[in-house]
C-alpha cells in the first residue's frame, strides 16, 4: 500500500474516533454506537499511526526459517 493511502486512512480514522468520542460525550449518539465505532476504528487508528513513519522502508522477504 502506498504511503498517502495509509496516511489518509489514519487521518480519517482519527476524525471518526475523536468524533465518536465527542458525540458520545455530548449525547448525540448512543453509548452502543460510540462503542461500535471505536471497536472498528481504534485499531485502524493505532496501526495507521504506527505505520505513518515506517511504511515502505523494507523489501518483502521470506519468513524466518531457523538459525
Amino acid at each position: 500500500m502506498e504511503k498517502w493511502k495509509v496516511q489518509t486512512m489514519t487521518i480519517a480514522a482519527f476524525i471518526v474516533v475523536i468524533g465518536a468520542w465527542a458525540a458520545g460525550l455530548v449525547g448525540l449518539i448512543g453509548q452502543g454506537a460510540t462503542a461500535a465505532l471505536l471497536v472498528v476504528f481504534f485499531p485502524v487508528l493505532c496501526l495507521g499511526m504506527m505505520l505513518w513513519w515506517t511504511l515502505g522502508k523494507g523489501e518483502d522477504d521470506l519468513p524466518f526459517m531457523g538459525y
Binding site: L47, M49, M50, L51, W53, T54, L55, K57, G58, E59, D60, D61, L62, P63
Partner: peptide
C-alpha cells in the same frame, strides 16, 4: 516496535496477516 522497519512476508496471506 512501532518505529521498526516493517513489511509483510512474501509468503503471507496479506489481508489476514494485517
Amino acid at each position: 516496535f512501532s518505529f521498526k522497519e516493517t513489511w509483510v512476508p512474501r509468503t503471507a496471506s496479506t489481508l489476514l496477516y494485517v
